[in-house]
């Protein structure tokens, strides 16, 4: 087949966020902004950096033996295991349910959708202790529907599912809103079934957002305290999560053990945050 010649237009396509990359670098500090940065950094250090490093220092003050003592303690290990496994499970649930919820909120139309949209934020804004109380009222000892989960491991999952609800929904929703339905139409006209279109065209576009939301949900899940304290019953080796364990170390005045457990938790939290940052940068690069 011979082809008609065409002038190759090789100019780069217009970037959607034209100047964001150049903006990111910004200008050098002026004396006034330098002063602002100084004051901000002092506050940030006093509030966050110094206290967090105090934990690490405290934990390492006792040397490796503190960690050893903490980690060989059956109760602490069980609490760590329960917390991480539950948070992972709930993160998986959120990745599926959060995506479906975002999907319905963006693509479906029915009366009362605006209220559902509002409901998603309730777990974020509701005081955690109240969240526990709220769940207890329906799933506690006086459950009106006969489902009692308090004091079982189900309660841990339930409370975590409650507090982590908004994260995946709120990260996926805007991406889905921006997604061009033309692309799905294009896939359909190329012969793709609805399911294949979702799997091969829509899902890949949502994956970074789903994982970003999942990282937030996981971080929140492993650090939850308030929502769990009332409903889980805090039974050692059964329903006691790390935060509760940490609190009982504190009440017992064992700050070294508390610091050791806290360091482990900080490390996991840091991992989640770094993962989140990496995902966001990957997405930004792809444009």
């Amino acid at each position: 087949m011979t082809t008609a010649p065409v002038a190759v237009d090789s100019r780069p396509a217009r970037k959607r966020r034209s100047a964001s990359s150049s903006r990111r670098s910004g200008t050098a500090l002026t004396p006034a902004s330098g002063l602002g940065l100084g004051v901000s950094m002092i506050w940030f250090s006093l509030l966050v950096l110094i206290p967090l490093s105090a934990i690490v220092v405290k934990a390492s003050g006792g040397g490796w033996s503190t960690y050893e003592a903490v980690l060989t303690s059956e109760n602490t290990r069980a609490a760590l295991q329960l917390t991480v496994v539950s948070a992972l499970l709930i993160t998986l649930v959120n990745m599926v349910m959060g995506t479906i919820i975002a999907w319905v909120l963006v693509r479906d139309r029915f009366h009362g959708k605006a209220i559902l949209d509002l409901v998603i934020d309730i777990p974020f804004a509701m005081p955690t202790i109240v969240a526990g109380l709220v769940l207890l009222s329906l799933y506690g000892p006086q459950s009106p529907i006969g489902v009692q989960v308090n004091g079982t491991r189900w309660s841990v999952l339930l409370a975590m599912a409650f507090v982590t609800l908004p994260f995946v929904v709120r990260t996926v929703q805007p991406v889905l809103e921006e997604l061009d339905t033309d692309v799905e139409d294009a896939a359909a006209s190329l012969g793709s079934s609805r399911f294949t279109t979702f799997r091969r065209v829509v899902l890949p576009a949502l994956v970074p957002a789903i994982f970003a939301g999942a990282a937030l949900a996981f971080a929140r899940g492993i650090s939850e305290y308030g929502a769990l304290v009332l409903i889980s019953g805090n039974l050692p080796r059964k329903t006691e999560v790390v935060s509760v364990r940490l609190f009982s170390f504190l009440e017992g005045g064992n700050t070294e053990a508390a610091a050791a457990v806290a360091t482990i938790m900080l490390f996991v939290a840091l991992l989640a945050i770094v993962a989140l940052d990496m995902i966001q940068r990957r997405v930004a690069r792809r444009g």
Partner: peptide, 28 residues
């Protein structure tokens, strides 16, 4: 649409962003 065997080209291209050019063309 998937049973009509029509080719459709959109004003704003409707490219599959996460696929290479070759993969885009190979999709159908």
């Amino acid at each position: 649409p998937q049973k009509r065997n029509v080719g459709f080209v959109f004003q704003h291209y409707a490219v599959f962003k996460h696929m290479t050019v070759a993969k885009n063309v190979a999709f159908g």
